[in-house]
Design a protein around this nucleic acid. Structure first.
Lengths: 137, 137
DNA sequence: TCCATACCTGATAAATCTTATCACTTGTCG
DNA sequence: CGACAAGTGATAAGATTTATCAGGTATGGA
């Protein structure tokens, strides 16, 4: 993923570009759909404290660089994003892919009109079974 | 909300219709977007133990009767649903409304074709600021 | 480049949230 | 109406998340 865009976004939000934060973001970018705990365990071996991971996740999430979502079975997972994103999640193995197209502009406008909300965005997660898990079944 | 449909779904899934579970579901139906802790506190006054609330939430979620989602600021919240549902969430006050229309059938089919996933469903959450909070600002 | 400063980090403790255990109760089905 | 598996409440145990604080470091300006 594009680390330049990431760093630009971070400075734009007044966040320092520390190696710890970049490592956290990269951990979720390399393998989307991991839990915080998994990343805490991985980065702890690299000398990054757990509190730092939790703080980084919060900061990156607030900046719109991480997307938090509730996977099947209730686990909270994250995916690295650069702004808007749709996700495709495998219910079996937890694999996460990014969907680029978004046809919801008109729908958002309709929702805004009918609800009188000031709509700011949306999160769309599509669930299914990935090709690999389909074979295995 | 329709308690009949709820009970039919519960028995269809092999879940017993206990008063505790109905109370949990109703708590999230009356005011969508609450956290588990909030409901634990409310129902504890009615003599329902916290472990029961956690167990009920898991059972109802597995049965597709509760939707778990990550609200802004990372809090995990729930809404009572009867199958498919889209949510409209206020970023300020946390109010949650249900959106009935769904125009994503064609999109799902397209995603399935392109990704080779067996698509089973989706979750859509629209964020914004509700009319009440807009006035207050 | 170097400094000053506000922001960030790591370690630990504390607080919070979630699950396990167990004796007892209650829906469900024949 | 029973029998029995499933569910419940209280408590303890376990897991996750946040607070604290002393020290480190990225950043912007001289």
């Amino acid at each position: 993923m594009d680390t330049d865009a990431l760093e630009r976004r971070m400075t734009a939000r007044g966040l320092r570009r520390t190696p710890q934060r970049l490592a956290v973001w990269r951990a979720f970018a390399e393998r989307p759909g991991r839990t915080i705990r998994e990343v805490v365990a991985q980065l702890h071996e690299q000398g990054i404290g757990q509190a730092t991971v939790y703080r980084a996740v919060r900061a990156l999430e607030d900046a719109g660089l991480l997307l938090r979502f509730a996977a099947p079975h209730g686990e909270v997972r994250f995916a690295a994003v650069l702004g808007h994103a749709h996700l495709l999640v495998c219910e079996r193995c937890g694999a996460v892919e990014s969907l680029e197209e978004c046809h919801l502009g008109a729908y958002e406008a309709e929702v805004a009109r009918r609800s009188d909300y000031l709509v700011s965005g949306h999160t769309l997660i599509v669930y299914g079974v990935c090709p690999h898990c389909r074979e295995g079944a």
